[in-house]
């Protein structure tokens, strides 16, 4: 009894020492993780329907479960994944799928460039981890965050990991639901990709010239498709319209 009492007392006596030395640092870390996760909530609102739609559509297009999940895990780019579902199911050449993915995701180059000044002092592999999970939505999220002041790695990674985990879970839910849903059309799920493109496009158009360049790219892309250029229309239209836009911009500046 006495011995037991002593043990209890011993443990109790030691608790304050633990909390003053170790817990505060841990508390701060937990707070940062919590803040990072909470900030990600608006992103998750967008990820759940898109990830779900991707899972359902991949299932309906007959893509294997392994490949559907693999894309969410290692490519992790909503629009490219949805496009890939269409391309894979229509038997487009692998090289063309990869080239389309490259062009579609090239915009992330800009996002990454925008963050470079905020991430000085990060190690190469930390930067790689950060960049691996850089999407349109996490870009919007972190731009707002960095505008408020420096953010810790813990908080940023908590955000990114929460976002990707949600993306993967939504994919799984979609794949599962795909087995239960006979047809995606009554739910409007086939409209997830066009609707997401419209929303992303609106977010990216900053001024009139960029809006005009976008319109030109859209028209070129349609014309190329009508002319029978079915695999490279997006890439060609983008290259031509972006270059034309740049020329007009440089020309009007002088």
């Amino acid at each position: 009894m006495i011995h037991d009492g002593g043990r209890v007392k011993y443990l109790f006596m030691n608790e304050p020492a633990i909390s003053t030395n170790d817990l505060p640092a841990q508390d701060i870390r937990l707070k940062q993780i919590q803040r990072g996760m909470l900030r990600t909530l608006p992103v998750l609102m967008g990820y759940v329907p898109v990830g779900f739609a991707y899972g359902v559509l991949a299932n309906k297009a007959g893509l294997p479960v392994f490949h559907t999940l693999l894309m969410s895990l290692i490519v992790y780019a909503g629009s490219a994944q949805l496009i890939a579902v269409t391309l894979f199911s229509s038997g487009i050449a692998p090289l063309s799928i990869i080239a389309t993915t490259f062009i579609v995701n090239l915009r992330h180059f800009l996002f990454s460039a925008a963050f470079a000044p905020h991430l000085t002092g990060w190690r190469k592999r930390e930067l790689a981890g950060f960049a691996f999970e850089l999407t349109d939505e996490t870009f919007a999220l972190h731009s707002t965050r960095f505008a408020e002041g420096p953010a810790t790695k813990t908080e940023i990674f908590a955000s990114n990991i929460t976002a990707q985990v949600t993306w993967v879970i939504s994919t799984i839910l979609g794949m599962t639901a795909g087995n239960l849903i006979g047809d995606v059309k009554p739910f409007g799920l086939d409209y997830a990709l066009p609707a997401m493109f419209i929303a992303l496009l609106v977010m990216q158009v900053k001024d009139r010239l960029h809006a005009l360049a976008a319109l030109a790219a859209g028209v070129f892309s349609v014309l190329l498709l009508m002319a029978g250029v079915t695999q490279w229309n997006v890439i060609l239209a983008t290259l031509v319209a972006a270059t034309l836009g740049l020329m007009v911009e440089q020309w009007t500046k002088k």
Binding site: L106, H210, A214
Partner: peptide, 8 residues
Amino acid sequence: PTVLAALT
């Protein structure tokens, strides 16, 4: 903006 419009 151009790549998104070319897709949309």
